[in-house]
Simulated assay, not measured.
Amino acid sequence: NKEVMEHGEGVVRHIASNMLEERSEELADLGRDLATIEMYAESEYPRMRYDEAVDALQSKGVEIEWGQDLDYSKEKVLTQDFEVPHFLTHYPRVAKPFYHRPDPEDQKYVLCHDLLAPEGYGEIIGGGERTWSEDEILERIDEEGTPRDPYEFYIDIRRYGGVPHGGFGLGVDRVCTWLAGAEHIREAIPFPRDSRRVTP
């Protein structure tokens, strides 16, 4: 999980750095403070465990119980005071689907992370390690009460040679929204869809 986070951080910092080098004029036209973008490009991104995030939210008067996932409204409150993106790690096992790998040091948690952008923008990366053991997958599926049949293809991958692996997904539109300082993600999507428009 650590290596996956380091790679994700490198990608985001590279994007911020390239935007400064190649699009600083456009960023300035959008009213962005270039020193802030430079800070995003050059600073290391701190790590915060889920438990710390829950404590921080509760101290701000947000109603959240341990084990709940953090939706956008909670991420927004949490990231208001961030100067740079933060990784949120070690979500509770009960909050994540069966394919997340449990933390070998504390099975109550899984080895996953979200990268939360500052200024209230919230999640821009979601990632972590995946379970590669057939026994662990079956245990987690049964624990959740999920039927096995629809996932036989997935179980087979573990049964016949799963390997340690992890990764992340980066929300390109979310990163663009954040770095551009846009008020809404639809401002950073070439063909946004909404309740009145599905096709471009």
Rank of each mutant, 00 (worst) to 15 (best):
V4F: 08
E9Y: 00
R13K: 15
I15V: 10
S17A: 10
S17M: 06
M19A: 01
E22C: 11
R23A: 14
E25H: 12
E25K: 12
R32I: 09
A35K: 14
A35I: 00
T36V: 15
I37N: 00
E38A: 14
E38S: 14
M39V: 01
M39L: 11
E42F: 00
S43V: 00
E44Y: 01
Y45I: 05
P46S: 03
R47L: 04
R49W: 02
R49I: 03
D51I: 12
E52G: 04
A53R: 12
A56T: 06
A56P: 00
L57H: 08
Q58L: 10
Q58K: 15
S59L: 05
G61K: 12
E65S: 15
W66Q: 04
W66L: 03
G67Y: 05
G67T: 11
D71R: 13
Y72D: 11
Y72T: 14
Y72S: 14
K74E: 12
E75F: 11
E75C: 09
L78D: 06
L78H: 08
F82M: 12
P85F: 03
P85G: 02
P85Q: 00
F87K: 03
L88Q: 07
T89F: 04
P92Q: 13
R93S: 12
R93C: 04
V94W: 02
A95G: 13
A95Y: 10
F98V: 12
Y99C: 06
H100E: 08
R101G: 02
R101D: 01
D103I: 00
K108G: 13
Y109E: 01
H113G: 07
D114P: 13
D114R: 11
L115V: 13
L115N: 09
L116R: 12
P118T: 00
P118D: 01
E119H: 11
G120W: 09
G122N: 08
G122W: 04
E129A: 05
R130E: 02
W132C: 02
S133I: 00
E134V: 10
D135I: 01
E139F: 13
R140A: 15
E143Q: 14
E143I: 05
E144F: 08
G145C: 12
T146N: 02
P147D: 14
R148G: 07
D149R: 15
Y151N: 05
Y151E: 07
E152H: 03
Y154T: 07
D156T: 11
D156R: 15
I157D: 01
I157F: 02
R158V: 07
R158E: 04
G162N: 10
P164T: 06
H165D: 09
G167I: 06
F168R: 09
G171K: 03
V172T: 14
V172I: 15
D173V: 06
D173Q: 03
R174M: 06
R174E: 10
V175F: 04
V175R: 06
V175C: 06
W178L: 04
A180I: 01
G181K: 09
A182C: 14
E183Y: 02
I185E: 08
R186E: 07
E187N: 10
P190R: 07
P190E: 04
P190S: 06
P192L: 04
D194I: 00
R197T: 06
T199H: 13
